[in-house]
Each structure stands twice: as structure tokens, then as C-alpha cells.
Design a protein around this nucleic acid. Structure first.
Lengths: 163, 163
DNA sequence: ATTGAAAGGAGTTGGAC
DNA sequence: GTCCAACTCCTTTCAAT
């Protein structure tokens, strides 16, 4: 059981206009302020001000995401990991360094860590688990991957961190 | 066991420059082409061309993400769901509609669906599970949430879909 | 908090290498 | 594939409401 970080909950402070701007940028993060303004019947200056406010408040961020399928990663597997002799977060951060590792969650119950891993095909599974995952210090046990079909991924959940 | 979609693996086709551009946009999706160009010692015209190429190929996309912590969501829980009497994907898509639901995965083995849910605090867990999740047609069993601490979320994994 | 206008900055296109 | 240059378009700021 863990609160995400030391930060207090920020004021919600996002009104309907803020949310409309976010909605447009969720589809196209490089939409121009003028385009956004036109769609929402305000001026570009307003959009500019709102965006700065939200970025300063760390309520929103625009980022590039890559389509793993377009890059030839067609298989997603979930991998359970048990940790021994080292901090769970620490081991998780090491595992997170692999580009194939999409997500790392420290779970309270069941496994210590659950990973989502993107691979080109199933023939890579054994190799990845045993050559890469199990080579990390502190990884005591791996429960070999279960294929996953992604219905929704809405992330951005990571604390946005210092600028 | 499921291949992500009907699409064939696209040519990798991303060279070092493409990847450098993506790296910069991963930090700031609204970086100007000129800024990017300067950091990589090319011209803005080149960056513009590369970005169009990658967007057309659906290899990359720039999107807005919101920081759930900044919006007052401090607790992430994993919820296992078993489905009966309805298609798993179909139920998954219904569950995906809740704004609190960050991710929905159809797992092969264990639960049929695994959700990640963002809530303001633990007092909301029971209410959300029983008032919202269990109300969806086809949800046969819920394994109540396990708190999760996110180490990495690198997603973008969803097929990008038609423009 | 939003606007309008203005000045500086950025995006894109076409032609040359 | 990249560059240069020009044109067009966008972003931001500030005074005013």
C-alpha cells in the first residue's frame, strides 16, 4: 500500500476549457494553438496561457509515443517477478531500462513486480526472460510471460518529475 | 496467445536521426522543429520531413498525457476481473470507458481482464469496484484491488488506428 | 481571465546539391 | 536525404476590458 509520492494532491483546478484543450492535444499533440483556439472559439492567446498554466502545474504534458506494432513489436507479455536481496523499486528501475520493457509495477501481493514486455514474436520470449530479466541482480524468480492483448492504455501516470 | 492485430510488422526503417528526434519529443512533445534541429545539428526542414514521414508511417505520434497525481489521483490499484456470458474484449472496452480506468489488458491465464484504476484514495476503492466495475454486463468476478506503485510506464502501445 | 494587435519566431515548400 | 531561402503562418507579450 503506497501513496504515489510525497506530493499533496494538487487543486483540481482544471475547468472545461482546460479539458477541451487536453482532449484535442490527446489526438494531436502538435496541434497549433490557433487550431485549438478556433475549434474552441477562443483566441490563441488564451490557449497559450492555459497551456503554460497546465504545464507549470504539471497537470499535463505533451510527449511522443511510438507505436510498437509499427516498429515490429507484435507480442506483449506480462511477466511476474519475485525479488530477493535487493529493494523492489531498485530492481524495478533496473528492469525498466530495457527498451522492450513497457511498464514496471511494484505490486502489493502476488509478485513483487509485474512487467509488460514487447517482443517481436514468441520465439523471443525465452531468450528475453532468461538472458535479460534473470540476469538482473535481485531477481529471484520469474513467472514466464502470459500473452496480453491490450484493450486500453491511458498512461501518463508516472509522476512527471523535475523539468 | 494473441498477435496484436492483423497488421504485418512494418519495416523498422527508423534510423539514428529518427530515434534522436523521438527522444527529444518524448521529453517535450511541443519542442519546435528548430530546437530539435539545433540539438541534432541538422536543419528544421530535415526535422519536418522526418516527422511527417514517421507520422505517416504511424511509427510515432505526439499526444498529451495528464498527470494523475497532479489531478488528485494518488492511489493506483490493480483489479482482476473474470468474464462470463460476454466477449472479453467487449467487456474490456466497456470497462475502459471509465475515466478512472488507466489500462485494460486481456490476459491469457489467470484473470480474463486486468485493470489499472486510479482513485483519489483508498476510501474510494470499495465504492468503485462495487458500484462501477461490478455493474458492467459480463463481469462475473472481481478480485479486489491490489495497490500498485508505478516504476515505469512507457506506453503508446495501443495500435494507433486510423487518422 | 480573455482579447486584439504587433513583432519576433517557427513551419513548410520547392529547387539545388 | 539534406540544405537554403522565402513565404506563410504561428506564438507570445502587453495594454485594455
Amino acid at each position: 500500500m503506497q501513496i504515489r509520492n510525497g506530493r499533496m494532491a494538487a487543486p483540481p483546478a482544471l475547468d472545461a476549457l482546460d479539458n477541451s484543450i487536453i482532449d484535442i492535444l490527446r489526438t494531436n499533440g502538435r496541434a497549433t494553438n490557433q487550431d485549438i483556439a478556433q475549434q474552441l472559439s477562443v483566441t490563441a492567446a488564451t490557449v497559450s496561457a492555459r497551456l503554460q498554466k497546465m504545464e507549470d502545474a504539471r497537470a499535463m504534458r505533451v510527449v511522443a509515443v511510438t507505436d510498437f506494432a509499427a516498429r515490429g513489436y507484435n507480442v506483449i507479455i506480462a511477466v511476474g517477478v519475485r525479488v530477493q536481496g535487493r529493494g523492489i523499486q531498485e530492481v524495478g528501475r533496473d528492469l525498466a531500462k530495457f527498451p522492450e520493457v513497457l511498464s514496471v509495477n511494484a505490486m502489493n501481493g502476488g509478485y513483487d513486480l509485474e512487467l509488460m514486455v514487447a517482443l517481436h514474436d514468441f520465439s523471443e520470449v525465452q531468450e528475453f526472460l532468461y538472458d535479460h530479466i534473470s540476469g538482473i541482480d535481485g531477481v529471484a524468480q520469474i513467472d514466464s510471460g502470459v500473452a496480453v492483448d491490450i484493450v486500453k492504455y491511458e498512461f501518463n501516470v508516472v509522476p512527471l518529475g523535475p523539468t
